[in-house]
Design a protein around this nucleic acid. Structure first.
Lengths: 121, 121
DNA sequence: GCTATACTGAACCATTAGGTTCAGTACGTA
DNA sequence: TACGTACTGAACCTAATGGTTCAGTATAGC
């Protein structure tokens, strides 16, 4: 059975909970970028953007590399694998449960109709 | 095109970023539960659990209903649909990008080999 | 009606998030 | 070597988290 690292999931879902950071991920999906570029694009100070990048990095959703003065940010290689897995696993379980509930509701409904017919007579 | 509510995603990813709340969701997947039951199971005060439930409710991941003294919690009906959609959409985009990068790397590699052969002569 | 149960709300505490400013440090280039 | 660019780090601010305790309020059951 797959073992999910709780803290890793904590960090990455937290990272995804901010619109700016989701935007950054979207942007990095279109190509690597420096911190200055990202800061400019999201109208934010360098320092502010660096904090966001720090969180994304901690969650292993992006990696960075410094060449000269410039730190280049790119998507993490296994970005969103575990997160998708967690959500997928639970959706399956829950959908199964919702289906079961639907069936019960259906049964109740048809039973109701039957009862109604019986009382009419 | 589907319009994603930014704040809804904010709330639900934030809700998922805590191991206790993920546990609660898992538990509710197995059946409805009262706040007292959940608090007992996760070794927490009623008040503490109620806060978690509040966050999950705000994210529309669970719904609650009070009957008499007891508030019963159950999974939200469309739980995790949007979240899965967001992650899914981005994984597709990113995988496409990673594939493209792979190709480029491949091309560089074969070019390198060709160059090596050429210099040997 | 009394009592125990189940929740609710306010107040508090420590930590973190999401920003800022300001003062460096390090690197590229003229 | 001097200057501008790109980042880094510390310090600060406000708001939110993740908990707690304590003091209600409402309801089920004897």
């Amino acid at each position: 059975m797959v073992q999910y690292s709780e803290t890793r999931l904590d960090a990455s879902f937290a990272a995804l909970s901010d619109a700016t950071r989701r935007g950054v991920l979207e942007q990095l999906g279109r190509g690597d970028a420096s911190i200055t570029q990202l800061a400019g694009q999201f109208r934010m100070t360098l320092t502010g953007m660096k904090k966001h990048i720090g969180l994304l990095e901690r969650a292993a959703l992006v990696t960075t590399e410094k060449a000269g003065r410039v730190r280049t940010c790119r998507l993490g290689v296994r970005a969103l694998e575990e997160e998708a897995a967690w959500i997928g696993r639970h959706r399956e379980l829950w959908n199964a449960r919702f289906d079961a509930l639907d069936k019960i509701v259906e049964q109740l409904k048809s039973k109701e109709k039957a009862d109604a017919r019986r009382t009419k007579r």
